[in-house]
Design a binder for these strands. Structure first.
Lengths: 240, 240
DNA sequence: TTATGAAAACTGGTTTACCAAATTGGTTGT
DNA sequence: ACAACCAATTTGGTAAACCAGTTTTCATAA
């Protein structure tokens, strides 16, 4: 079983910094990376981690809770902790809490999104690799499929944009996009209407952006995204 | 079992789950605000907080540890937890952890900084209030003073730019700037030489930006910042 | 009145034991 | 052979007691 593999590797790593929580935190994080633990995989139980790392269960709990706060794992009572796929959600709260980003300031959020994405799509058009292009295409396929099935496609929409920011080759830009994505989703989940004509329009706009990136045309990419964000910009206008 | 994992991975509303988990966290944060606790003030003891908030001491501990991880408080064994300044440095570490921003990716950082600041200075030129303009002027005065005294002025430099992003009126942009500022400082602290002629050139460039914001001229502001970032852009070129 | 110092109270950290939910694996009934 | 069921085990969560420093208190001596 997977747990066995993990425990075996922990035996090798018995010379762990057992002093501070942060080290335990990093140990577990490294463990996740080292074994390529993916979405759905279970972490060893707290007791076993405690025993194998040679630290108290409290330290393990503390570290795991931090991981959960980051959204890296999701711990379920009386069951265990599993790796979550996309691990960004907590950062959202962090932004609100620590940077004192007041709740209803969606205008700033949308404004920033437009700025970031415009920069990202330009860089993506310049730098995208073949693999990244394929990822964007797949994201677009997922999006299209959802739309044509009349299912909610907001998540797939955002994922399309995230693959673009990833293709920008700028990790910070991509990180910022991941940072604000949950807020975007939360906001538009509330009010976005999804009638058919508008949905197909979105597909076409996405295709235009995709095509520009495929052709590595920076001006076209920027302009296509600009068109795609027309409604967003109207939203900004109407709330000034 | 499997169903559970699948359901959980499909659940994108992590925020809702988190909200209950971090209720105590927010309570303590509110308490800090409500009592106007400032830097150096001590937090009530864990036991008192436990009693006052009506939750177990474990929950309090968990929340306080999160606050410490954010750098909001610093807890000292057998003594107590004190409020630290604004906990931006901790955020910085967290960015590295969560966004997997590996050390030598300063190119992305600088690139992003240019993008963000260009957007910020344009917005600042449009929206700056009289008070914000004054803050920028004061920041520039501090910067100039340091330079003329031949003292290190990197912090004041960054602060000047932060007051501009603040004046943009976009809290998210400003937040992002605060987010990446420590990394920028850390990097340039290592290698930037500060000879006199270059320093005075920086003062003039800052003055140009300031003047453009004062005149509320968006093109001038953008162009002045562009000039100011010439060396940064060269840095990007040379590292491609 | 002030300085001293020891004890009492209080602090965060750790350990331990226990809880209830969830998983698991075997058993049983069909 | 298969499904339903049940009990033992394992899980994360909780609470209380204890530990080792720190801070406060206050009686006592200078």
């Amino acid at each position: 079983m997977l747990n066995k593999v993990i425990q075996d590797s922990l035996n090798i790593n018995h010379a762990i910094d057992l002093e501070e929580d942060i080290h335990v935190f990093n140990s577990i994080k490294d463990l996740i990376k080292k074994h390529n633990l993916e979405e759905g995989d279970k972490l060893p139980s707290e007791r076993k981690l405690s025993e194998k790392l040679g630290v108290s269960r409290n330290q393990i709990r503390s570290a795991v809770q931090k991981l959960e706060f980051y959204g890296i794992v999701k711990t379920m009572p009386q069951s265990g902790s599993v790796i979550t796929g996309i691990g960004v959600p907590a950062i959202n709260n962090m932004m609100k809490d620590v940077l004192e980003l007041d709740a209803p300031d969606f205008k700033s959020l949308v404004e920033t999104r437009i700025i970031i994405e415009n920069a990202a799509v330009r860089l993506a058009a310049q730098r995208r690799t073949a693999k990244e292009l394929e990822e964007i295409e797949n994201a677009q396929l997922d999006f299209t499929r959802k739309i044509l099935n009349n299912e909610p496609a907001l998540i797939e929409d955002i994922k399309f944009h995230l693959t673009i920011s990833k293709a920008s080759g700028n990790k910070v830009l991509h990180g910022i996009m991941k940072l604000i994505a949950p807020d975007i989703i939360a906001h538009f989940n509330k009010e976005q209407v999804c009638d058919r004509t508008k949905a197909e329009k979105l597909i076409n706009e996405h295709n235009d952006v995709l095509e520009a990136i495929r052709n590595q045309s920076v001006p076209e990419a920027s302009e296509s995204l600009n068109v795609h964000f027309t409604s967003l910009k109207n939203y900004l206008q109407n709330n000034n």
